[in-house]
Write a protein that binds this DNA or RNA. Structure first.
Length: 492
RNA sequence: GGCCCGGUGGUCAAGCGGUUAAGACUCCGCCCUUUCACGGCGGCAACACGGGUUCGAGUCCCGUCCGGGUCACCA
């Protein structure tokens, strides 16, 4: 069977050249791992930093693992994170299609080309299931490896099931270069004749990747370090085809602890989970970017980065070789930073649904103003402001505070005086409430805290509140404030 | 087990042969203050171990230990 060389020439002609091109190539699992997200980020950053092209490719060669709606999660996440792609299944591009299951014929043709070149062969051996003990069988002793092409072709034509394997030299060494790890050399005999085309005609990841990365003109292959040990085989494939080897960028994993990678299976949060837990997309990206990369030079101490700043500052030299443990505490810190950096209007808009979970009618902007410096996640909010809606049951013990010099007795005196002066306030605003209360303290010859403490306790019914007595009374409104203060008085 | 990679405070990390070994998170103390937070100031805390090379080693070399990855018709 003669190969259609024209096909290969046409494919070559379509490859864009001369610009940095990177690709994020997830397999659709239905959610975005934190590690995956970070890989996507780095991939995007490399492209944007170089003014290059960022491509999305869907790797769905495992027909047994297809998940309904999984690609939508990928589109949605990338869009939400502003990791915009220039080419992909949804936007098209010069080297379409961008879904591997739609490129099936291509892989078959290239596999056959590789057979012609002597770097691959048909194999008719029984399938060895994962985890099965393969004993001492040495792949290099596989009789199929030495079958003549004619004989193999005859068996294929006769309908015998087969796979196509890569023919790896038994002797010598292979060296490849990784942008992060440097040059790595391995003995060829430690490499096995990996399957390129599966029995069902689909390519393996290992093969599809090489073909697609080449045909799509990818200049920087960014992926997890779990592929580091198969990189020499990829190199041999590129060499077998006579193709230029791209720059490899192998990223170390994001860990849950010192010995385990983050995984959905172990209950570790995915990007979606983190969102549900109240984390902001910007904070997640910022944190995750620094988990494996750090800035150099005069911005070495900078930690807060917008996506644009990251794109400008990003460089491969700042990538870390060792795995990084994901620390939710530090993510929380970043989230708090981003929350505080929002303009009040934006924060109010973001906080409103959470405030409304527990507080029905009170003014949302005023409440939000108290919250902005006081919550690390938006999900902290409902619980913090619930007292506005309903005065909690509380003990008179709360009126005792040493530093404020109050106890139930003092509180009783302060409260009854406060009720009188507050009742006299005509325009219920913070300024007036403040003046009347501090004025009271002054008249009574006590420190401000001595009147503020009991008022706040009576108004809120709890020891710790967002905001002080003045703000709380103002938000509560005059009637409700007086009602609560009198209730407090009854307790004393 | 073979092969590959890694190892600076609890965590993320700077460091590129000479530094009092940055910075951030966490934790602790103080200040501010109307509770709590925010903010400010200060503190605790690290070069895995052993050999080299060198006038000098966290930085280079070797070994040990520890950790990770991989050895699928999964990606």
């Amino acid at each position: 069977m003669a190969l259609d060389m024209k096909y290969f020439e046409e494919m070559e002609a379509k490859i864009p050249r001369g610009k940095v091109r990177t690709r994020f190539a997830p397999s659709p699992t239905g959610y975005m791992h934190v590690g995956n997200l970070r890989t996507a980020l780095y991939t995007w950053l490399i492209a944007r930093n170089a003014g290059g092209t960022f491509i999305l490719r869907i790797e769905d060669t495992d027909q047994g693992r297809l998940v309904e709606g999984a690609t939508d999660v990928i589109y949605k996440t990338l869009a939400e994170c502003h990791l915009d792609h220039d080419e992909g299944p949804d936007v098209g591009g010069p080297v379409a299609p961008y879904v591997q299951s739609e490129r099936r014929d291509t892989y078959g043709k290239y596999a056959r080309l590789l057979i012609e070149k002597g770097h691959a062969y048909y194999c008719f051996c029984e399938k060895v299931e994962s985890g099965e003990d393969t004993g001492d069988f040495d792949r290099a002793d596989d009789p199929c490896r030495t079958l003549s092409l004619e004989e193999a072709q005859a068996r294929v034509d006769a309908g015998e099931p087969y796979v196509i394997r890569q023919r790896i030299p038994k002797e010598g060494t292979t060296t490849f270069r990784d942008a992060i790890f440097g040059d790595i050399t391995v003995e060829n005999k430690t490499l096995d004749d990996q399957v390129l085309i599966k029995r069902d005609g689909m390519p393996t990841y290992n093969f599809a990747n090489v073909i697609d990365d080449h045909l799509m003109g990818i200049t920087h292959v960014v992926r997890g370090s779990e592929y580091l040990s198969s990189a020499p085989k990829y190199n041999l494939l590129y060499e077998g085809f006579g193709w230029e080897v791209p720059t490899y960028v192998h990223c170390s994993p994001v860990m849950r602890d010192a010995q385990n990678k983050m995984s959905k299976r172990h209950g570790d949060p995915s990007y979606e989970d983190l969102k549900d837990q109240g984390f902001l997309t910007e904070a997640i990206l910022n944190y995750v970017a620094l988990l494996g990369w750090s800035p150099r030079g005069d911005i070495a101490e900078q930690e807060v980065f917008s996506l644009e700043e990251l794109a400008r500052a990003f460089d491969l030299a700042g990538m870390s070789k060792s795995p990084a443990i994901f620390d939710i505490e530090k993510l929380t810190h970043f989230n708090a930073l981003y929350l505080r950096a929002m303009c009040p209007e934006d924060f109010t808009r973001a906080a409103e649904p959470y405030i409304r979970q527990t507080v029905k009618d009170l003014p949302v902007a005023e409440i939000a103003a108290l919250l902005q410096a006081r919550c690390e996640k938006l999900t902290d909010i409902p619980e913090k402001v619930a007292f506005f809606q309903e005065l909690p049951e509380y003990s008179a013990d709360l009126f005792t505070n040493k530093k404020s010099k109050t106890n139930p007795e003092v509180a009783k005196e302060m409260l009854s005086a406060a009720v009188v002066v507050l009742d006299a306030v005509h325009t219920w605003n913070e300024g007036n409430i403040h003046d009347v209360l501090t004025g009271l303290a002054e008249g009574l010859q006590v420190k401000n805290a001595t009147v503020m403490w009991p008022v706040r306790i009576a108004a809120a019914g709890q020891a710790v509140t967002p905001g002080g007595a003045v703000e709380i009374c103002h938000i509560l409104g005059k009637d409700e404030t007086l009602r609560r203060l009198k209730l407090g008085l009854d307790k004393l």
